[in-house]
Design a binder for these strands. Structure first.
Length: 659
RNA sequence: GCUGCUGUAGCUCAGAGGUAGAGCACUCCCUUGGUAAGGGAGAGGUCGAGAGUUCAAUUCUCUCCAGCAGCACCA
């Protein structure tokens, strides 16, 4: 038998018989290592302890100390153990796939009856039994026919289909423990007992299409989470609770920011508090954009279908538009608005986006190259008929307002405009409390228009722009639009969740379709490029993110109710009103609370309402013309003179761009 | 849109085939109290909408609407 040389992480090499398995290698090193080992890394590939190594290789034996392989294996093995448990309890359930995901795994089953929470408990119990049985995990390469026979005999049509999707020439491997087999490329642990029995939890069951395809049957997906130990699991469950506490729908109600109701699904009724946040944010963005060289415009809501046909949106997206049919022959007096005189009906759509309207503004008058780059911004209210199942609080809605802008420019201005936008966005995110964000660069897709040379140029311009402002990006090859590449901006919130908000997209297509042009230096007409860009995305969604990020405790300048001045005794009422008046004069949103309630009660109520500052006024303060300051989240209070607090809160109330 | 679940007072939720209950919030009264709920009284509901079964439906059945979780979708 031929010999191969295996090189260990410490640089030492040893010879073994070809076909040696990591299990044998580990055994040759020490008994304890072979017991602890969970997998190997062979030439950088994650390698099962049972797989033979046939050529000279580098090798590292992994144990539970190695986070990445450990978590991968724990979760993947749990997927198998769960599927086995399910089939042991309900033998007629059909299995499909069960990949590792985020903090755990899921497995999709086909079963007539829905799984109940009690079922999950039973499955979990059976899983623990399987783990405690310490069943050896075995694997073998099978032929395609063997596997097909096996799954045909056992009545597993989904598995047969999955088998058929494995490309010709690839190894087909079966894994099993106990009586239970699964088609799987591995690797897996050495035995089921290597899975920590107290560090996983079945979370919920929901529906998912087979292979993610909405024309295929709906399956039941059971989600589980798993970690290396019980503490990590606990930490994760605490994180979930934390996220739940921040839910903007809950906080929106508690802080009286907005509500939604049946008659207007997916649309927001902003209350005074919420609208204060909204307008503060919008005023801020308006100033930033003005300073950033944008010209603000406003365009119509109800636009004839003709424009959407011209832009190409009607063809592709009409089912996602709110269509408004109007009988224009109505006399305007005793008409029935729903009556349709087909000969005089005009079909409009509520605008789902602003771009075509912006091109209309650009198209007015003759544009010169001297006008470029022309940056047209709009807080554009859009309506999209989102599928009912997509709606989510104010995060995903049917009526929303984008902080939209379109930059009309020449090809050689793209890079500078892109760099300029990244800086703009970075500054805004910073000021709004999101110092960290990630850029994802989506490049040319398979199906596209335009020459390779122009794609080369435009992609190069974006890449250079990112470099010019000293930032990194991750590449998403093939994810661009059919007409141009784009950048998506993902910010990270206070508990580490990432949200896509900003976008920057290069579009030579729409100017073409809608006939935009400018007169160049050469006196000829040229096509401008159009750069779509948004920083917040939509105000609705961004405010949702702000609420969740700050757990409702918005920065002072954004807080809807900034200060409550609370009386302790009613003799203080006049002075309370005076303090409120002074604060109001200084630009602070202050209100008086002179209700006949104890100070404890008022403090509690306004704390729950996330008011950042409570000023308490009793006899002492009236006498000394001071206030007692209590900041949200602090138990400590401090006494300050009226003049001082007015000036310091006045400063706090100033938006970051005006400091 | 799909699968499952849910819909009872402003909010959070209990309840039962014979037309409803709690806590908080609200209104009024007492209380002027020094930093996260002072006491008392009162008012408040076509039980998501429609249809069916029944002597009787908010309760059971069906349809619709909306919400929640996930999937699919997100120009």
């Amino acid at each position: 038998m031929s010999q191969i040389s295996l090189t260990f992480p410490d640089g030492n090499a040893r010879d073994f018989d070809a076909g040696v398995t990591p299990a044998e290698v580990a055994e040759s090193i020490s008994k304890s290592l072979s017991k602890k080992a969970i997998s190997a890394t062979v030439n950088g590939a994650h390698w099962d302890m049972q797989w033979p190594i046939t050529s000279d290789s580098s090798i590292a034996i992994n144990t539970m100390q190695d986070d990445e392989p450990a978590l991968e294996l724990i979760r993947h093995d749990l997927a198998h153990i769960m599927a086995r448990a399910v089939q042991e309890i309900w033998p007629d359930v059909k299995v499909t796939i069960g990949p590792v995901r985020d903090n755990g795994w899921f497995y999709d089953f086909d079963r007539q009856e829905p799984f109940t929470p009690e079922d999950l408990g039973a499955i979990e119990k059976r899983m623990k039994e399987i783990i405690n049985a310490r069943d050896a995990v075995r694997t073998e390469l099978w032929t395609r026919d063997q596997v097909r026979q096996y799954y045909t005999d056992s009545g597993e049509p989904y598995k047969v289909e999955i088998l058929d999707r494995i490309p010709e020439g690839e190894d087909i491997r079966m894994y099993w423990h106990g009586e239970w087999m699964d088609l799987c490329r591995g690797p897996h642990l050495q035995h089921t007992g290597q899975v920590p029995a107290d560090a996983f939890k079945l979370m919920n069951v929901s529906a998912a299409y087979f292979l993610g395809d909405n024309t295929r049957p709906m399956l039941q997906r059971i989600y589980g989470v798993a970690f290396k130990n019980r503490d990590d699991l606990k930490k994760y469950l605490t994180f979930l609770e934390e996220a739940e506490k921040r839910d903007h729908r809950k906080l929106g109600r508690e802080m009286d920011l907005f509500h939604m109701q049946e008659e207007a699904p997916g649309q927001v009724f902003w209350h005074p508090n919420g609208w204060t946040v909204y307008t503060a944010l919008q005023d801020y963005m308006r100033r930033k954009q003005r300073a950033g060289g944008y010209l603000e415009i406003n365009t119509p809501q109800v636009v004839d279908r003709k424009l959407w046909e011209a832009s190409g949106h009607w063809e592709k997206y009409q089912h996602h538009m709110f269509v408004v049919e109007v009988d224009e022959s109505r006399d305007g007096e005793n008409d029935d608005a729903s009556a349709k005189n087909k000969d005089h009906t005009r079909i409009n759509a509520l605008k789902p986006m602003n771009c075509p309207c912006h091109v209309q503004v650009f198209n007015q008058g003759l544009k010169s190259y001297r006008d470029l780059p022309l940056r047209l911004a709009e807080f554009g209210s859009c309506a999209r008929f989102e599928p009912s199942g997509a709606l989510h609080g104010i995060m995903r809605v049917r009526g929303f307002t984008q902080d939209d802008a379109h930059i009309f420019c020449t090809e050689d201005q793209i890079q500078a405009e892109c760099a300029r936008f990244i800086d703009f966005l970075a500054n805004v995110y910073q000021e709004l409390g999101f110092p960290e964000f990630e850029i994802r660069f989506a490049t040319r897709p398979e199906k596209r228009v335009g020459s390779d040379e122009s794609w080369d140029y435009v992609e190069g311009a974006l890449e250079n722009a990112i470099k010019a402002v000293g930032r990194e990006y991750t590449l998403e090859p093939g994810d661009g639009a059919f007409y141009g590449p784009k950048l998506d901006f993902y910010l990270t919130d206070a508990i580490g969740r990432v949200w896509q908000c900003g976008t920057f997209q290069v579009d030579p297509n729409l100017p073409e379709r809608l006939g935009a042009s400018f007169i160049g230096q050469d006196g000829d007409r040229h096509r401008p490029f159009m750069l779509h860009r948004a920083c917040l995305g939509s105000f609705e969604r961004f405010i949702g993110i702000l609420i969740e990020n700050w757990e409702g405790k918005l920065p002072f300048w954004l807080a809807p109710r900034q200060v409550v001045v609370a009386s302790i005794v009613s003799e203080a009422d006049d002075y309370v009103n005076e303090v409120v008046a002074e604060l109001t004069k200084a630009g602070v949103r202050a209100e008086a609370d002179t209700r006949n309630e104890k100070i404890n009660y008022k403090v509690r109520e306004h704390s729950v309402g996330k008011v950042p500052v409570i000023l308490a006024i009793g006899h002492r303060e009236v006498e000394e013309r001071t206030v007692t300051v209590r900041r949200l989240g602090e138990k400590q209070t401090s006494v300050t003179s009226l003049a001082e607090i007015v000036s310091s809160l006045g400063k706090d109330a100033t938006p970051p761009d005006l400091l």
